[in-house]
Computed example of a mutant assay.
Amino acid sequence: MSDRLKALADAGVSIWLDDLSRERIETGNLAQLVEESSVVGVTTNPTIFAGAIADGERYDAQVRSLVADGADVERVIFALTTDDVRNACDVLAEVASAHPADGRVSIEVEPLLANDTEGTVASAKALWKSVDRPNALIKIPATLEGLPAITEVIAEGISVNVTLIFSTERYRAVMDAYMSGLERAKEAGIDLGTIASVASFFVSRVDTEIDARLDAIGSDAALALRGKAAVANARLAYAAYQEVVASERWQALAAAGAKAQRPLWASTGVKNPDYPDTLYVADLVVADTVNTMPEKTLRAFADHGEVTGDQVTGRGEEAQALFDELAALGVDLDDVFLTLESEGVDKFKASWTELVETVQAQMSQVGA
């Protein structure tokens, strides 16, 4: 086992792999990562599935059978992805049994529904029913239309990974949506202890967007702040999380058996080669959080990542001071987050188009 990854896990960070493929499942690679690399969860998205399907032949037989049965591309995608997530849930079932907050595998609602509340709810219910595993998580975007969908789905006892969160303001709305769903679930007599949730707060994209604006400003003061906003933004989010879990509203839900919606640091692969490749892991170490990493980042941390204690708790004021500096320099933070969400939704949808085109090509190939 990697001592560095074990140290990260011992610090209270749940390590989730941001990747999944049928090859990982069938060759035992996923089980090996659980055994040797402290991996205790998996996140997926359509781009990940598109790459898995395009690169391997392990899907051919199932695609051929579905095509012969008259399935359209949406049905084929649904079958392939839910099968992989169900099987990954089984690989992680022992982890989930020992540590119910972990052992989770996430699957996204159809991205074209990002601005459709009712459609998102229907998609989430269909995915939850098909995967049929208690350690699954259904990913719902934190768009304005996604917020009521989160409440509705949680209220029915479905576990949720809220994705595409960029601002602390939206994060607070996500936490409110989660608690509203739990309150409704409680009224319906659902065991709150069976409901799990994480809130995926995106990290690296914040630096990418704000760094570009700092470069455009060009002053020494502006350039000195490059590469600092993303970590500060996550620390502000964690301060908001601490505030909410200390509230009377949350304490009442916790007393009824509810589990906290843990912060999850997403988009933790470093995009700027000038920055340390473990930046968004090492600088965001804090207990009871999740860090979902692409394998490249996982391997980098295993090789040279350093755990130097809690890097987040009590640093909200420091983070706010940095954001005040950014604002004073002319960085429009409201516009930053609007831009990131808009681009995130666009990427979300483009990812789905990529998956559809990949599966259509596969269907044509096996049907030829």
Rank of each mutant, 00 (worst) to 15 (best):
V160W: 08
V245L: 11
W16P: 03
A222F: 01
S123R: 07
S106K: 06
L264H: 05
K129R: 12
A258I: 06
T47K: 13
K347S: 13
L137E: 07
G344W: 10
A237R: 07
A328H: 02
A256K: 06
P273M: 05
L223N: 10
L253V: 02
D55R: 15
I190V: 09
R133S: 07
L80P: 00
F202P: 04
L182P: 10
S180T: 10
P46D: 12
V39I: 01
A302V: 06
A230H: 13
L8F: 10
S106M: 08
P141T: 03
S364A: 12
S14Q: 12
K6D: 13
N87C: 04
L279I: 09
A232P: 10
V174A: 14
A222P: 00
W265I: 03
F323Y: 15
A224P: 01
E317C: 02
G344K: 11
N45W: 02
E295Y: 15
Q32V: 00
T297Y: 14
A31R: 09
K125V: 14
A266C: 08
Y280R: 05
F49T: 02
V366P: 11
L284W: 04
V286L: 02
S159R: 00
Y178V: 04
V105W: 13
L30K: 09
A230M: 08
S200D: 11
D274R: 11
P111M: 05
Y238L: 12
V312S: 06
L326W: 06
A232D: 12
G367Q: 15
V131Y: 06
E295C: 03
R315I: 09
A266Y: 09
I154L: 11
D116G: 01
R22D: 08
V76S: 12
E23A: 15
K228P: 00
A234P: 00
L17S: 14
S65A: 15
A368D: 13
A212V: 10
A155I: 06
E23H: 13
Q242V: 01
N115Y: 14
A155Q: 06
A361C: 00
H304Y: 02
S97H: 12
R170L: 01
A234S: 14
D83K: 14
D332N: 15
L322R: 10
E169G: 03
V281W: 05
L17H: 13
V231G: 10
A93C: 05
A212N: 14
D191M: 08
T308F: 06
A222L: 03
A173Q: 15
E343V: 12
F201T: 05
T168L: 00
S342Y: 08
T168Q: 13
P276M: 02
R4A: 15
V231S: 14
E108P: 02
S351Y: 11
I154F: 11
A101W: 04
P294K: 13
I195T: 13
A229Q: 09
P273L: 04
S2L: 03
L355W: 05
G12C: 06
S106C: 09
D60M: 11
S180C: 10
E295Q: 12
D211R: 12
A230N: 09
A188V: 00
V105Q: 10
L80Q: 01
A229N: 09
A232V: 07
G257V: 01
A350Q: 15
T353A: 15
A188K: 15
F337K: 07
L223K: 11
T151S: 15
G119Q: 08
V231R: 14
N115W: 02
T278P: 00
